[in-house]
């Protein structure tokens, strides 16, 4: 991205006032980026911003409360930051947001479907919407639009929810777009048995690693999660699909109207289970009931964090 030099300069300038700045750097191979915790000018030099920078770094913010933290954030990431602020889980004064124009994102599962095992990719490069991937066997030219994660296809963000510094590339259009949520629609059209079979089939391979939970920026109970408690005994330690499904429902319920649809839960799942649709469904219900979209307005009170004596769209009494 053209603004990276400018971004690095700004971070260098601000670093003396901050304990750490979180961004991305090249990871262990060509297709993986890694979160970077920058505390020195040398580390700032390693900063990268490209469509492989897929981690939503806002997830680290609650754990760094009390420190002065800078964060490099795409537009959708600032939505998570917004929701964290709304819920007083982080402090605005402790935070410096380096907002970057999103260069688009690559869903590594989709990339694997196109080029085969990612562990054999020798190089990957981006030129506008074209993605060139080299493996020892072949070179493929792909369309970034086809590689976008599902979350980038249903909601488009032109502007950040909040920013202290903003970095844009004049040649770069907004990559995310607002299309019909086909995954969710397909699920809604299934009958109950079919839908149940769908989830049974997918969740059977869940290993209960809780990457989906721990990566979620809004999942703030972390070590106190009811999925882990022995007393009360909400979930058994068994590995059957009932426990796994129950956990997904607990998570989705606890995230209803708080989830910013950042897609991290689904991205983090090592077993590639399409769990984001459950959260989307719940969010859609919240939207219908309260007309509320999480994280878009730092001053708004999330509907499930407050109450009205009488909710406009919920009829409790028929008289």
């Amino acid at each position: 991205m053209k603004y990276v030099a400018e971004l690095k300069a700004k971070i260098r300038e601000k670093l003396p006032e901050l304990d750490v700045v979180i961004g991305w750097k090249q990871g262990f191979d060509p297709v993986h980026a890694s979160p970077a915790f920058m505390t020195t000018p040398e580390e700032i030099e390693q900063l990268v911003v490209n469509p492989l920078c897929v981690q939503n770094l806002a997830t680290y913010l609650p754990g760094l409360k009390g420190k002065k933290v800078g964060i490099v954030a795409r537009e959708c990431d600032t939505r998570s930051i917004g929701e964290l602020l709304q819920e007083s889980l982080i402090e605005r004064e402790e935070l410096t947001v380096f907002s970057v124009k999103c260069p688009g994102a690559v869903d590594l599962v989709k990339l694997r479907q196109q080029v085969g095992d990612l562990g054999r990719v020798r190089s990957i490069s981006f030129d506008g919407p074209r993605v060139t991937v080299e493996t020892p066997d072949e070179s493929s030219s792909l369309d970034l639009g086809e590689l976008l994660p599902g979350k980038c296809r249903v909601m488009a963000y032109d502007e950040p929810v909040l920013a202290d510094f903003r970095f844009v590339d004049p040649d770069q259009d907004t990559v995310c777009r607002e299309e019909a949520d086909t995954d969710l629609v397909a699920l809604e059209q299934m009958d109950l048995d079919e839908r149940f079979a769908y989830w049974r089939g997918h969740l059977d391979r869940c290993i209960r690693c809780y990457a989906c939970r721990n990566v979620c920026p809004m999942c703030v109970c972390q070590d106190q999660c009811i999925a882990d408690t022995r007393d009360p005994h909400w979930l058994s330690a068994e590995t059957d699909v009932r426990q796994k499904w129950m956990f997904q429902l607990i998570h989705a319920m606890h995230l209803a109207g708080r989830c910013t649809e950042c897609g991290e839960c689904e991205r983090a799942c090592p077993m590639d289970i399409p769990i984001l649709t459950i959260r989307r469904k719940l969010n859609r219900e919240i939207h219908e009931l309260f007309g509320y979209t999480s994280g878009m307005d730092v001053d708004a009170v999330p509907p499930l964090l407050t109450f009205q004596p009488e909710e406009k769209s919920i009829t409790e009494r028929e008289w």
């Binding site: 997830t59 290993i207 721990n214 330690a237 983090a268």
Partner: peptide, 22 residues
């Protein structure tokens, strides 16, 4: 610093053998 303390690495590891009894 970047670890989120989940169980993905352990549960997919062919050599990790720690267990709980309940």
């Amino acid at each position: 610093a970047k670890c989120i303390s989940c169980g993905a690495c352990t549960y997919l590891c062919p050599t990790c053998y720690c267990f709980n009894i309940s």
